[in-house]
């Protein structure tokens, strides 16, 4: 992972901080996590051997004290099961509109075999098995902030591949201006798709402008927290665009299409006044029904609401602001 990308997101910000950090630090000795605490190189083993060679007794003692302190914290934090929050509290309307519905209803979701159909303005059109799509790529981990349009946020370590590297293989033509994605449509497996009272049309459609899709932040996730993507989080393959509201990050993708015209995306169609095509995280453009100026970082507790200001482009301005130069983001929300 390029260092630049991890500039804002430290490992210790991961929603699943406890288990994730403690797992690693337990494995590698607590010394590793002390020295690597604010460094993206936490994974490297080079700091774990510092255990025994101390110049003075003072250093030895300090090290022991810090170590025991960290151990205490790690054990305390590990009691909560934070991977559970990211995998049990999310929106996936195909599996129900409640936050805990996806986990409940996606248990038997079949993701193998999985095919992705590639269509439109490209030379590599066709239907691909997921394993053929993934095989030639080296997977990487990216820790991204996820900001939901509903004003809550998480930090999640995704595992996957940059969208750009996959799109390149399909050789899009020069008249491909947008990339359109579609979620599986299968009302038998996805009970939410036959809900009578829902104002959403299925299959779920999302799209990115070509330059957004080829930005190095755009990511296709196949796993999270070092595990295969849970069904409820969009298995087997989903998009992650961290500078846009969560609903842009379409789940369980079965179709990728290169198109010339800007597609009408699902939420835009359902309520154009509330959801625009770009849906960039922007604290100064309100959702008509609530303010986007702040967010609740989850998990929060009833004794600390954990409210923090929302950043422009979810804090990824350096990487993506150039895409929107000269655009009135109040109009193109």
């Amino acid at each position: 992972m390029p260092k630049k990308l991890s500039r804002n997101t430290h490992e210790n910000e991961v929603t699943d901080e406890s288990v994730y950090l403690s797992r690693r630090s337990l494995l590698k000795g607590f010394g590793g996590s002390i020295l690597g605490y604010h460094s993206p190189l936490l994974y490297s083993d080079k700091s774990s051997s510092t255990g025994n060679e101390f110049g003075s007794e003072l250093h030895q003692m300090l090290f022991q004290k810090i170590k025991s302190r960290l151990k205490e914290d790690a054990i305390k934090l590990a009691e909560s099961t934070p991977f559970n929050y990211a995998s049990s509290y999310n929106n996936f309307y195909e599996f129900g509109s409640g936050k805990s519905d996806p986990k409940k209803n996606a248990k038997k979701f079949i993701t193998d075999p999985w095919e992705v159909s590639v269509q439109g303005e490209c030379d590599g059109a066709g239907t691909y098995h997921l394993e053929d799509l993934v095989r030639p790529h080296l997977l990487e981990e990216r820790i991204y902030r996820l900001r939901c349009v509903e004003a809550w946020s998480m930090v999640i370590p995704w595992v996957g591949l940059p969208l750009l590297s996959l799109l390149k293989r399909f050789k899009p033509r020069s008249n491909a201006k947008y990339v359109k994605f579609e979620t599986l449509y299968d009302p038998i497996q996805m009970p939410g798709q036959k809900s009578l009272f829902s104002a959403i049309e299925y299959p779920y459609v999302e799209a990115l402008r070509m330059d957004e899709a080829t930005n190095e932040l755009s990511f296709l996730a196949l796993g999270m927290y070092g595990k295969i993507l849970p069904n409820q989080n969009g298995a087997p393959i989903r998009l992650v665009v961290p500078w846009k509201y969560g609903f842009k990050s379409i789940k369980s993708i079965v179709k990728i299409e290169f198109v010339e015209e800007r597609p009408v995306t699902t939420w835009m169609k359902s309520n154009p006044r509330e959801y625009g095509f770009y849906s960039n995280v922007n604290p100064s453009v309100d959702h008509p029904r609530w303010s986007q100026a702040t967010e609740r970082r989850l998990p929060s507790s009833i004794f600390s609401p954990n409210i923090r200001p929302t950043e422009m482009f979810n804090g990824y301005g350096d990487e993506v602001a150039y895409l929107y130069r000269g655009m009135d983001l109040k109009k193109f929300y």
Partner: peptide, 21 residues
């Protein structure tokens, strides 16, 4: 549940307790 949260230092309100309440 609030009392239990204090005593057992566990979250009994899900990921987003504010919204839930």
């Amino acid at each position: 549940r609030a009392i239990c949260t204090l005593i057992f230092d566990k979250n009994y309100f899900g990921a987003d307790p504010g919204m839930e309440l």
